[in-house]
Design a binder for these strands. Structure first.
Lengths: 213, 213
DNA sequence: AAACAATGTAAACACTGTTAAGATAGTAAT
DNA sequence: ATTACTATCTTAACAGTGTTTACATTGTTT
């Protein structure tokens, strides 16, 4: 779906004074530029030149540079949410398989879009001003994990004594940690990743079958 | 140990041409400034003004702005390592209690120094140029977790069939995820954190007692 | 005392985000 | 269709940034 080498073509021959679709173009160029050169390398001016437009025109579509970054991050969460929903809505898949697919899908996104993933969890977007729209989309993607564990419980696979929310929080923390550390190559070598995931899933399976206190 | 409101005093009356301890002063001021205003707010000029020195003097102690940030991050890992070592070296503490203390200590650091923690795991420092010294200190702090689980195994508490490295990687991922999400208030409310940690530790305890395949 | 290296400063460069004022083009109202 | 209006894009300017270059001051070694 994503091109391996996104094409950053320096301006296209748009004879129109009004670009017509500048907002989307800016977002797309941002994803490309960030993916290739890192978050730091993204400047409004470079971006505008890439799209073939004056750099101040950005301010008609985004309040801030921060707002643009928030939109890029939001798009990332949207992508994850979409993928999760497709997995969840497949009636032919067993619950445990859904979990496995959800996990590997999440980690895949992080490792394939490491800089965007970094942006999505940057402290600025969560702590600073209220990028409320962005945060809403992000939290929606999380609720699907809670929903998954609730289904586990409804089908009696997971003991009623367990707390689905806590379980989802714990599992998602692990997932985020794995994704982050793997995508940045911090500790686990890229190859070890699958091993660790398998290792983690075994634990969850044990938890589900044994269902301890 | 850390002051709640670090004092950012704008320049001290240093009549000396040579500051004498500029490197340390810059690091300390960086930690303060970052902690109060965020990473983005740190500029070499602001920093220099805070210490009462010309902004170009930084380049005699750090190659880059990035190098300075790496030093700040390195100091953070050093702090964590030191705390872990104190826990590990206490002969009067049981292994399981050491684990608990290590976990809560780690999370405490992250929640009390959220911006520095963010910096420590920023992609730039891990991906970009080779801040080798920084990475060495960081990885040292991780090895202590591996060492802990190895001890578990030596004392027969953890089944020999388990892989201490994998276990440490998994646990540390979880820990990092929890710390990050909690310190930025992303999903878990700050109050829920203790619950989740307790929940997580129970899982590890179960793993250790039952010692499954 | 002279030579040297370490550590400080000042000036200049290219680049950044942001604002303000004006140009252009589509759209709705008369 | 002409007018008014709004959305969109441009140019010009501003303050602030990291970094380099050349120079000043100090501490140390010969």
């Amino acid at each position: 779906m994503d091109k391996l080498i996104p094409n950053i073509t320096p301006a296209k021959p748009t004879p129109n004074y009004h670009h017509g679709n500048l907002r989307e173009a800016l977002l797309a160029a941002s994803v490309d530029l960030i993916g290739q050169q890192g978050i730091q390398a993204l400047s409004l001016r470079k971006l505008a030149q890439l799209v073939g437009v004056s750099h101040t025109s950005c301010y008609h579509h985004f309040k801030d540079k921060d707002a643009l970054l928030a939109a890029v991050a939001e798009q990332g969460f949207g992508q994850i949410s979409k993928g999760l929903r497709q997995i969840m809505d497949n009636a032919d898949t067993q619950l445990m398989d859904k979990l496995k697919q959800a996990v590997s899908g999440y980690v895949s996104f992080a490792t394939q879009n490491p800089t965007q993933y970094e942006l999505m969890f940057g402290r600025d977007l969560w702590q600073g001003e209220n990028h409320s729209q962005f945060q809403r989309v992000a939290k929606d993607s999380f609720r699907q994990y809670v929903y998954l564990f609730e289904q586990f419980q409804q089908e009696g696979i997971l003991a009623a004594s367990e707390n689905p929310l806590r379980l989802a929080q714990l599992m998602w923390s692990t997932l985020h940690g794995l994704a982050k550390l793997a995508s940045d190559g911090i500790f686990a070598k890229q190859g070890d990743l699958d091993d660790i995931i398998e290792y983690a899933l075994k634990r969850v399976e044990g938890l589900i079958n044994i269902s301890p206190t």
